[in-house]
Simulated assay, not measured.
Amino acid sequence: MENWTNAKLCDVANLILGAILLFSPWIFEFDAGKVTQNAAITGIVIAVLAIAALAAFAVWEEWLNLIVGLWALVSPWVLGFQGTTAMKVHVTIGILVAVLAAIELWIMSHHPPRLTASR
Rank of each mutant, 00 (worst) to 15 (best):
I44V: 08
A50V: 09
I46H: 00
V48E: 05
I67R: 03
V59A: 15
W60D: 12
L70R: 01
F81I: 02
T84S: 15
L66P: 01
V68C: 05
A50Y: 08
V48H: 06
E62W: 04
S75D: 09
A52I: 08
V74D: 06
W63A: 01
A56K: 15
L79C: 04
A56R: 15
V59S: 10
S75M: 12
L64R: 02
I51M: 12
A53R: 13
L70K: 04
L64Q: 02
A58E: 11
A52D: 11
A52V: 02
G83L: 14
G80W: 03
V68S: 05
A58H: 15
L54Q: 14
V48N: 02
G69Q: 05
L79A: 03
V78F: 04
I51Y: 08
F81M: 01
I67L: 13
T84N: 06
A58P: 07
L73F: 13
A53T: 14
V68T: 11
E62F: 02
A55I: 14
I51H: 05
L79R: 01
S75Y: 09
G83H: 12
S75F: 09
L64S: 09
V74K: 05
I46Y: 00
I67H: 01
I44K: 00
L64T: 05
W60P: 06
Q82M: 10
G83S: 10
W60F: 15
W71L: 01
E62H: 12
L66V: 06
G69T: 00
W71M: 00
I67D: 03
W77L: 03
L64P: 02
V59I: 15
L54V: 12
V48T: 09
V74Q: 02
E61H: 12
A55W: 15
I51E: 07
E61Q: 14
I67V: 15
A72D: 07
A47C: 05
A52P: 03
G83R: 13
V74N: 01
W63G: 00
W71C: 05
W60T: 14
V78Q: 08
A50G: 07
G83E: 10
F81S: 00
A58R: 14
I67Q: 08
P76D: 04
L64V: 11
L54G: 10
E61G: 11
A53S: 15
V59T: 14
I44G: 02
P76H: 10
F57N: 13
P76M: 03
V48F: 07
A55S: 15
E61R: 11
A53P: 10
W71R: 02
A72Y: 00
N65R: 15
L49G: 00
V78S: 06
A52H: 10
V45Q: 02
V68Q: 03
F57G: 11
W60G: 01
W77H: 04
L79V: 08
T85H: 11
F57H: 14
V78L: 14
A50W: 13
F57I: 09
G69S: 04
L64I: 12
L70F: 08
G69H: 06
G69E: 04
F57L: 12
T85P: 04
S75N: 11
L70M: 09
A52Q: 14
V74W: 08
A55K: 13
V78H: 04
L66M: 09
A47V: 08
F81E: 03
W71N: 03
A55R: 09
W60Y: 11
V48A: 06
T84F: 07
T84H: 07
N65L: 14
